[in-house]
């Protein structure tokens, strides 16, 4: 949660749009399915990043720009910090997996410029079978923290550089997979009885994360059986959740 704040003069939404003499926003009507005025930031991105901006299109009035997975952090940083664009508001981070599993999995960033009252969708395609990794934008937007954790939990996408990437909606030891992937059945991989017995095994009293135990520097003070329980509960991924022996 140590995102650097962008240069930001006036907290009045629409100030830059008014200064540029553009009309007030109105309810959009009769939007074309495809085509229409493109968000001017895309042209600036092409100029700045060249081939890293793969392609763009306008669908139902919103501009989508596809960028190279390696360049996405730089692209978002440029969009946020350049005062000519000032995309200072991160709306959402999510992912889309298509039913046709040969299609690449898409990571989607919705960013918004409050001064310009513009909206832009940035997409990164991760080819089927490749490692699901993109750069984290938590250093740019504090809002990205939980959104990236949720994306990791639900899709298994690793956000490199996220300070605390662990499951957020499912519990830490959930081992059925990532629920929103298309190969995950609607009712889960295990039978209902197995799901329930696994869920009931979660120890509510020992259910502190290692971070929390290190808060109070309490791990070494716990009784031996509780230590064992915690170790066993986190034995699924020892690398990610290694218990500090000194409790720090």
């Amino acid at each position: 949660m140590t995102a650097s704040l962008p240069p930001y003069e006036s907290p009045v939404p629409g100030s830059a749009r008014e200064a540029a003499g553009l009309p007030d926003p109105v309810t959009p009507r009769y939007i074309a399915h495809q085509g229409g005025p493109e968000n001017p930031s895309v042209a600036a991105l092409r100029e700045r990043f060249g081939v890293a901006v793969l392609r763009s299109h306008v669908m139902w009035g919103d501009t989508t720009v596809f960028v190279d997975p390696k360049a996405v952090h730089d692209v978002i940083r440029f969009l946020r910090d350049d005062t000519a664009h000032a995309y200072n508001y991160l709306v959402d981070i999510t992912a889309v997996e298509y039913r046709d599993t040969d299609q690449p999995l898409e990571v989607v960033w919705h960013v918004r410029s409050l001064p310009w009252q513009r909206f832009l969708r940035i997409k990164v395609e991760l080819a089927a079978g490749s490692a699901l990794e993109v750069a984290s934008v938590t250093d740019l937007y504090a809002a990205a923290d939980w959104l990236e954790r949720e994306c990791y939990d639900m899709f298994g996408i690793t956000f490199n550089g996220h300070p605390d990437l662990r499951r957020i909606l499912m519990w830490d030891t959930y081992n059925e997979g990532h629920p929103l992937r298309k190969d995950f059945p609607l009712r889960g991989r295990f039978s209902r009885a197995e799901q329930l017995s696994q869920a009931l095994k979660i120890d509510t009293s020992g259910g502190y994360s290692t971070t929390e135990l290190s808060i109070a520097e309490a791990f070494n003070d716990l009784p031996e059986d509780m230590k064992q329980r915690l170790r066993a509960a986190r034995a699924v991924d020892p690398a990610a959740l290694a218990l500090p022996e000194d409790g720090r």
């Binding site: 704040l5 962008p6 991160l90 409050l114 009252q117 504090a142």
Partner: peptide, 27 residues
């Protein structure tokens, strides 16, 4: 600045002095 960076919206953001309301900004 913090509220915008944290992605706040609604009354949380407006209480901090940012007059962002989707009804006005993206009607």
């Amino acid at each position: 600045e913090e509220a915008i960076n944290c992605g706040m919206s609604g009354a949380m953001l407006r209480a901090s002095g940012v007059a962002y309301d989707v009804r006005k900004d993206f009607p």
